[in-house]
Design a protein around this nucleic acid. Structure first.
Lengths: 219, 219
DNA sequence: TAAATTTGTTAGACTAGTCTAACTTTATTA
DNA sequence: TAATAAAGTTAGACTAGTCTAACAAATTTA
């Protein structure tokens, strides 16, 4: 029942996300610092504190991994984040691209009663508005295999179900292209040279880059 | 649009509450420190910082008052607090005595969009679960005149509408006596010597102290 | 009104979280 | 494999917010 700060929670969450996304267990100091928008020196200091609290395993010049306890805390933060996103989207009529930044704040509210009641109020949702799975209480972060827009061959139809990048910047771009969750996407053509794709959404054609396409999850 | 921290918000809120409750404009350093659970030296340091930000007027050895801007911020924090309390009580089925502590955290979430949407979702409530008025957007903290249980003569009936002290400790005691918002209270007798009262709530009699009675608002 | 008490202030120290600049270790590549 | 580059660490400094201990001003009261 040790006190855990907002900042510490953010470091743990970042470690879980990075290792989850990369598929590798160990995370590097620079990688972590970049993800959090701090300097490597700062991350290094914090990692020593987290090691003292037995939340990460970390030896000098080696990769960082979460301990069981660290992983539990990180998973709980992600669970809270996704439940709050769902609340903002479903109950408060936030748009799909606005929920993330507010949920970044709400995820740190400390009250297990609050999050249990919220989950019940939302009727135990399985996915957040970006299509990401919401871990169950005391559960694990699960990975479902996901196709991106990049995997869809020319001429085929697909449906957007989620995004990889949750930043406001990206999400607003997505909206600008006329794309939203559950929208049908028709892949019209693809340039061999730079993988630039032309897609059609609701009758409107747009060109999107490889970087864009790999951040859109589809079925 | 200067950055204002949780801590600063709490100091401003405390200043508004103390001056509001005491009816006097100026607040003392010790009084403020006591209310916030910090040492007077700490409060003094913070007051200098708040003065630098033009949020309080404060001269050495004089009483502290909020500036216009300081008062606006404090009122907004109280508005957020009371809206969140209403949400917790009405939507998440929190009991009346549990809402305060969680709202203490939620009141610091920075997003005017969030609070506007929340207010709409709750259908623009005028009072929180403790019967305190919720300031309107950009509005003032208003005081309605309030009778306490202490003002009720022996033999008379009254109805509880709010409490003065919002601490969990007090609220749990209130619940233990079988009292809740909108409950009818019958004042059965009062001791001259120490003002100890015997009251009846839902057919059950209890003895309550003067201190207890003056924290129960009634109509 | 002078002494005692209360109230408020200052100085110096500590922690968490951040930085820059310099340094060391590990990994890459010519 | 030796030089270069990338990744990671350390040392020292800064801010916000807190403390204790000592001191100063204002207020109360004998």
């Amino acid at each position: 029942m040790s006190m855990i700060s907002f900042t510490e929670e953010n470091y743990l969450k970042a470690l879980l996300r990075i290792s989850f996304d990369s598929g590798e267990t160990g995370v590097g100091t620079n990688e972590l610092a970049l993800h959090l928008g701090v300097k490597p020196a700062t991350a290094n200091d914090m990692l020593k504190r987290l090691r003292d609290k037995a939340l990460v395993d970390f030896e000098k010049y080696k990769k960082i991994t979460l301990t069981r306890e660290g992983k539990n805390i990180a998973t709980e933060v992600i669970r809270k984040h996704r439940l709050w996103e769902t609340f903002l989207y479903e109950k408060l009529e936030f748009s799909w691209d606005e929920v993330h930044d507010v949920a970044e704040q709400l995820e740190h509210i400390q009250s297990s009663k609050l999050i249990d009641k919220l989950e019940k109020f939302l009727d135990y949702p399985a996915f957040d508005p970006h299509g990401d799975p919401i871990p169950s209480k005391g559960g694990e972060l699960t990975k479902q295999f996901r196709k991106t827009l990049l995997d869809i061959p020319v001429g085929q139809l697909c449906k957007m179900v989620a995004v990889k990048d949750n930043s406001s910047a990206f999400l607003q771009y997505v909206v600008k292209v006329g794309l939203g969750i559950n929208n049908e996407i028709h892949v019209k053509s693809r340039q061999e040279f730079d993988a630039l794709m032309v897609i059609e959404v609701n009758g409107v054609e747009s060109s999107v880059s490889e970087k864009f396409a790999e951040n859109i999850y589809v079925v």
